[in-house]
Simulated scan of single mutants.
Amino acid sequence: MKLAAVGSNCIDYYNNIDNGKAFPGGGPVNMAVYTVRLGGEAAYVGPVGNDSYGEIMIHAIKSKGVDISHLRVEEGKTAISQVELINGERVFGDYDEGVLENYILTEEDLEFIQKFDVVICDVWGKVEGQFKEMKERGITTAFDCATDPEAEECKTAIPYTDYLFFSTDEGDCAEIRNKMKEIQTKGPKLVICMMGEEGSMCYDGNIFHKFGIVPCEKLVDSMGAGDSYIAGFLKGIIDGKSIENAMKLGASNATETLKYFGAW
Rank of each mutant, 00 (worst) to 15 (best):
Q82F: 04
V83R: 13
V83C: 11
V83F: 10
V83P: 12
E84I: 00
E84V: 00
E84G: 00
E84F: 06
L85D: 12
L85P: 12
I86C: 10
I86E: 14
I86L: 14
N87Y: 09
N87H: 12
G88I: 03
E89P: 05
R90P: 04
R90G: 04
V91D: 14
V91W: 02
F92W: 09
F92M: 08
F92N: 06
F92K: 03
F92C: 04
F92Q: 05
G93W: 12
Y95W: 06
Y95M: 02
D96T: 11
D96W: 03
D96G: 08
D96R: 13
V99L: 09
L100S: 11
L100T: 07
E101F: 00
E101M: 03
E101Y: 04
N102P: 04
N102T: 01
N102R: 09
N102H: 12
Y103A: 01
Y103V: 04
I104F: 08
I104M: 12
I104L: 13
I104V: 12
L105H: 09
L105V: 06
L105S: 06
T106K: 10
E107M: 05
E108K: 14
E108N: 13
L110A: 06
L110P: 09
L110F: 03
L110Q: 05
E111P: 06
E111L: 08
F112E: 13
F112M: 07
F112P: 12
F112K: 10
Q114A: 08
Q114R: 14
K115G: 01
K115I: 00
F116R: 06
F116L: 01
F116G: 07
F116C: 02
D117Y: 06
D117F: 06
D117V: 01
D117E: 05
V118Y: 09
V119G: 10
